[in-house]
Design a protein around this nucleic acid. Structure first.
Lengths: 243, 243
DNA sequence: CCAATAGTGTCTCTAAGACAATATGTT
DNA sequence: AACATATTGTCTTAGAGACACTATTGG
């Protein structure tokens, strides 16, 4: 071990430290498409571009706590499914200074998504267009309500692409889909969420079989109302006891 | 936006910053079991416990570059499969000061693992015992060459568990297994790697079929030598062109 | 009864597990 | 030839896709 290494290990405070931030991908389903909530930057750098809501991590605050705080402060939301996504640390990702960003994925129900829009009117709901199939990855586009491509700030387009890849990847082996649905939902709604995330249609009988066999769905005996046709049964998500 | 937020956004340098480090899970297969390279801490805190090799991230160094540097400096290794794992940011994970650690998974071939041991004799090769089945997760143990449980420093046991969960999770849909094998290998060696990571035996004909159907394996026409029985054909990993 | 969607039955096809047979090196 | 493992064949079974059929509600 040379002297520089020793000093680094012994007293890292002698070295310049990067800033650490969290950025949130606030994701929901809107009009049958995945959508994200963005903020317009009004200052340098990237003024006029659209950014993910974020904030610096306090010195006495865990990463998860910082993400929960940003969710509260920037989306007016007390709770949501929140999971760490990836940490972005390119040296020049922010031209002002060295900022390492820990990206989080926040999953919002349709109701929560709309509530956030009402609570924080400066948020823009942007549809996410995922041109690639499967879980392999690639770039994605964020579209304005007028269906125009939005210019994203910093490396946030990459963060968004990472979020979609993660979501597609774990959709069918995990329970994330339920984080996008209300307490009670029909099998059709569950399938709609899957299809929106995957960007592809699914086989109905096979989908039903698989979901019911998984043992996560508890039938309530209640049925949806208001439809002009046969109402569907409402289910509730019941985390498996065996797992 | 209140004044505090404004100041944070405008001048984060006015706030205390955490230190950022990378920690590496140097993982290979040894004696048919997953193994990791550890360093004994000789100083406070956690003196006497075993830690993952790590180092602070330089102010002009990307996270990936920092991980590659630690790989070079602490394992004497120029190249290895290196992927970001997860970022650990509990406030009290290091009693000295606030240190956020970006964990990386480094996959080493058996030859590279032994070469690292020769180049850096203070590294200890510890077998990893994974008591849980499948990809669900849970704690793991690190065993000394004498098969005694090792006390790990900081939250490194959690990092190790995360590494094993990640590895098991992506083993059969990704090409990570090949990062643990030499240039040329037999199907039995490939299966051995899978079985070591999964901690379970696999059906031989089914394994062969699946691997060959995937299209990643290029037969070389050459055969292994030195065995006291029928030699197996050697294959080479050929990244798929279609993907 | 009609429209529209919920929910089910059935056939086919693919892929995995189980098990065993055949192939081919060394000694 | 005996041995040990490589490689292949085949049977069975589980699960997905395709497609069509029945069920139920409002009008």
């Amino acid at each position: 071990m040379n002297e520089t290494d020793f000093l680094k290990d012994y007293d890292p405070s002698a070295f310049q430290r990067p800033s650490v931030a969290v950025d949130l991908v606030l994701l929901g389903i809107r009009d049958g498409r995945p959508a994200v909530l963005l903020l317009k930057r009004d200052q340098h750098p990237h003024a006029g571009r659209w950014a993910l809501p974020g904030g610096f991590v306090g010195i006495d605050e865990s990463l998860d706590a910082a993400a929960a705080r940003v969710l509260r402060e920037k989306a007016g939301m007390a709770h949501a499914h929140l999971e760490q996504l990836y940490t972005f640390g390119a040296v020049d990702r922010d031209p002002r200074m060295r900022i390492i960003s820990v990206a989080y994925l926040a999953l919002l129900t349709e109701q929560a998504f709309e509530a956030a829009l009402r609570a924080m009117p400066m948020l823009l709901p942007a549809a996410i267009e995922v041109p690639w199939a499967g879980e392999v990855g690639g770039p994605v586009d964020a579209l304005s309500p007028e269906n125009e491509k939005l210019a994203l700030a910093f490396d946030h387009a990459g963060i968004l692409a990472t979020a979609m890849r993660r979501l597609r990847g774990k959709l069918d082996y995990s329970d994330v889909a339920f984080a996008l649905l209300p307490e009670l939902f029909t099998l059709r709604q569950l399938q709609d969420v899957h299809e929106a995330i995957l960007g592809a249609g699914l086989n109905k009988p096979a989908f039903r079989r698989r979901q019911l066999d998984r043992g996560w769905l508890a039938p309530t005996g209640a049925y949806e109302s208001g439809a002009a046709f046969r109402p569907a049964e409402l289910y509730r998500f019941q985390p498996s006891t065996a797992d």
